[in-house]
Design a protein around this nucleic acid. Structure first.
Length: 194
DNA sequence: GTTCTAGAAC
DNA sequence: GTTCTAGAAC
């Protein structure tokens, strides 16, 4: 008989190990770029773009799905500070800020990244689609939704799964690279033309 | 989140 | 033969 309880325990353990990694980084002065009483700013360990920061609140919120109206002010502060970091480092407005709807690390983190996607960590279809489909929900819209409706309109788990499996498509043009390698080469062309 | 790897795709 | 992807392991 399959021991699903045991399997679940293992999953929870590995899940908490993953969560600890982000918490460990938050507590390591060498990895922290900025911190205040509300959140910490880190550099993503496996950057997907040339610039890739994470704004991580101290409040233990698992994912964007668990965010409520009570968190609106916190999210606004994270958004404001993320914007500052981006202007300071990235400039030219060529950056995105937002959340993965179903991340693998269950501690809320706001991605702040330049839009070149030429980072060393950009090496799978999942990575690409996690930023270029509605799997990625922009910080601005999260705040707007909370202000207007008191809740955030998010894609379902099934929709998320489908978004991650979307065939590769460049978000800057209509090119559809046949694989990740071709995508990375294609992105370099855009980067050099900018 | 990444790394590893078996099997699919080329 | 090599490259690529998806899923398990971590």
């Amino acid at each position: 008989m399959e021991n699903s309880e045991e399997k679940e325990t293992i999953e929870l353990k590995s899940r908490s190990d993953l969560n600890k990694r982000l918490l460990t980084a938050m507590l390591d002065p060498e990895q922290v770029i900025f911190s205040n009483s509300l959140f910490v700013v880190l550099e993503d360990k496996y950057p997907k773009s040339e610039w890739h920061f994470l704004v991580v609140p101290w409040k233990d919120i698992p994912t964007i799905r668990e965010v409520t109206l009570d968190d609106l002010e916190l999210l606004k502060m994270m958004d404001m500070f993320g914007r500052e970091i981006a202007y300071e480092n990235i400039g030219n407005n060529s950056f995105w800020m937002g959340y993965h709807v179903e991340p693998t690390m269950y501690r809320l983190h706001l991605h702040v990244l330049s839009t070149d996607f030429c980072g060393i960590g950009m090496n799978s279809i999942r990575h690409w689609n996690s930023f270029t489909t509605p799997f990625f929900v922009e910080s601005e819209r999260v705040i707007q939704d909370l202000e207007k409706y008191g809740r955030i309109d998010l894609p379902s788990t099934l929709q998320c799964k489908n978004f991650l499996a979307t065939p590769l498509k460049c978000y800057k043009c209509s090119h559809m690279p046949k694989n990740v390698n071709a995508l990375n080469k294609h992105l370099l062309v855009h980067k050099n033309n900018c």
